[in-house]
């Protein structure tokens, strides 16, 4: 796995994104088409933005790995664990057993879709989205729009996206997986 260091400065987001995409295009020469390029760029920008929001001045590690045409992009840090304010409660890590029993947690959403988390164990949440086909966009639809898109964007741009918290070390890892297609 190739590692890149993000210093959590806004000015570093775009140059690091360009650098990592350059590396990915080099290791996955013929399998990064325009769609994959957009998805990778979007995921990187949102992972780095997420880090900027939650990490302060510490550094964040970005890992890139390619195995059997699957691209793994991970973000690892020792910042605060992922905080999710669901309509019912604020999630804390390790997840409480009543959350485990729910299996799926609605994180946020609007008429167009919901971001959900599937509980894999008390320290592992797998994100996915439920999308709805909206035929008519009313004023009420607009007024109900979500204004927080970060995790939703990564979940939609990825083929798989999860979060793991490691108790003891306090390490948080987000991993996005993109299945690259041979052209």
């Amino acid at each position: 796995m190739k590692k890149f260091v993000f210093n959590n400065e806004t000015e570093g987001i775009y140059p690091l994104t360009v650098q990592i995409i350059g590396y990915i295009k080099n290791i996955a020469k013929d399998i990064v088409d325009d769609d994959a390029d957009f998805r990778i760029k979007t995921i990187l920008i949102e992972l780095l933005t997420n880090s900027l929001k939650h990490m302060g001045t510490d550094v964040t590690n970005i890992g890139v790995d390619l195995k059997s045409n699957k691209l793994y992009i991970s973000k690892q840090d020792k910042g605060k664990p992922l905080q999710i304010n669901t309509r019912q409660a604020i999630l804390t890590w390790p997840l409480l057993t009543n959350k485990l029993a729910q299996n799926e947690i609605a994180i946020y959403g609007d008429d167009f879709g919901t971001l959900k988390g599937r509980v894999k164990n008390s320290n592992h949440l797998e994100f996915f989205t439920e999308d709805f086909d909206v035929q008519y966009v009313s004023k009420e639809t607009v007024m109900g729009l979500n204004e927080h898109y970060g995790l939703m964007i990564i979940a939609r741009a990825s083929d798989a996206f999860d979060y793991k918290h490691k108790p003891g070390t306090g390490i948080n890892t987000f991993t996005s997986v993109i299945e690259l297609k041979q052209r």
Binding site: I13, Y14, K41, I45, E46, T49, K139, V142, M143, L145, N146, E147, H148, Y149, G150, M152, I153
Partner: peptide, 20 residues
């Protein structure tokens, strides 16, 4: 050249105000 989720959220907030 690029827009992130925070900026999109700000744009949506402005649309809600405009429509109101």
């Amino acid at each position: 050249i690029y827009v992130d989720s925070s900026f999109l959220g700000a744009l949506v907030s402005a649309l809600k105000l405009a429509m109101n």
